[in-house]
């Protein structure tokens, strides 16, 4: 489904602040995979997402989505098939527009004609049904400005905007990190519901290691622009929180040993 080949990206290359964000990264996602991505700050998780979404172009390597080479496709064209939810609830919605208008805007991306009326009765009814599934009372507030909603409600609206027209790939960038624990749990539940219902191919960045192991069917760990761990299936089921942490320090140590060997 998604295939990343030898992706390489270096920021500020040629300056003293040069930083390799992705080092020859390879990753293949199968149809319907729900991958959780863990790793410390600066490991390159968000860079990986940005590369897939087209915020910048890769220095080297290719990205294939559903067999199509999207390495040089502009950002707005990729977003037709890639949905993305950010950590910041303010980013995914237009605050001065109503819930209905926000949903209508993202829904009509599947339609071609720019001069069709944006708000239609039949579609409004459909939006209402979608919203009512989340049991947050949003279906009765379709005329409310999104800016008046709480962070959790905004994230749910964003999630719905990204998934109403099923994307080929859904990217969740710590989308519950800015929410209180109870709301975060509820948003995570809704996320699982949506992903399972439409069998969406999904990648989710999280700093919650136990959530990373409980959610989805595969977990990858990133460090310094590389994937240092990729577990799925039985191996993953047996993996415990401590196991994951051990694995992390083990890999790190091995790397350091190698460095030391070089220096000695």
């Amino acid at each position: 489904m998604l295939k990343i080949e030898d992706a390489k990206k270096t920021f500020l290359s040629g300056t003293p602040n040069e930083r390799a964000a992705l080092r020859k990264l390879n990753l293949t996602l199968n149809q319907g995979d729900f991958v959780t991505v863990v790793g410390s700050n600066g490991a390159g998780k968000s860079t990986l997402f940005n590369a897939v979404c087209g915020n910048f172009l890769l220095d080297e390597g290719r990205i294939l989505l559903d067999g199509q080479d999207i390495t040089f496709m502009p950002e707005h064209k990729r977003s037709r098939v890639i949905g993305r939810v950010f950590q910041d609830p303010m980013r995914g919605t237009a605050p001065h527009m109503t819930i209905e208008e926000n949903l209508a805007l993202s829904y009509s991306r599947s339609k071609k004609s720019p001069l069709r009326f944006a708000i239609r009765k039949s579609e409004t009814q459909m939006f209402r049904e979608y919203l009512s599934r989340f049991r947050m009372g949003l279906e009765d507030r379709m005329d409310a400005k999104v800016g008046l909603l709480s962070g959790g409600q905004r994230q749910v609206v964003t999630l719905l905007m990204c998934t109403m027209v099923s994307p080929k790939l859904l990217l969740l960038d710590e989308h519950t990190a800015a929410l209180d624990p109870a709301t975060a749990a509820r948003v995570m539940e809704i996320t699982k519901e949506i992903v399972e219902k439409d069998k969406l191919t999904t990648m989710m960045i999280t700093h919650n290691l136990s959530a990373a192991l409980e959610t989805g069917n595969r977990t990858i760990m990133m460090d310094d622009g590389e994937i240092i761990l990729d577990v799925s299936g039985e191996e993953r089921e047996k993996m415990t929180l401590n196991g994951l942490l051990d694995m992390y320090s083990q890999k790190r140590r091995k790397q350091m040993d190698n460095d030391r060997m070089l220096l000695v």
Partner: peptide, 21 residues
């Protein structure tokens, strides 16, 4: 219209418009 809504959204949150392809 749809394009009119896009103009309004662009003035409100450009990121979101880009993300809506």
């Amino acid at each position: 219209t749809h394009i009119g809504l896009c103009i309004r959204a662009t003035g409100d949150n450009e990121d979101m418009v880009r993300a809506s392809s």
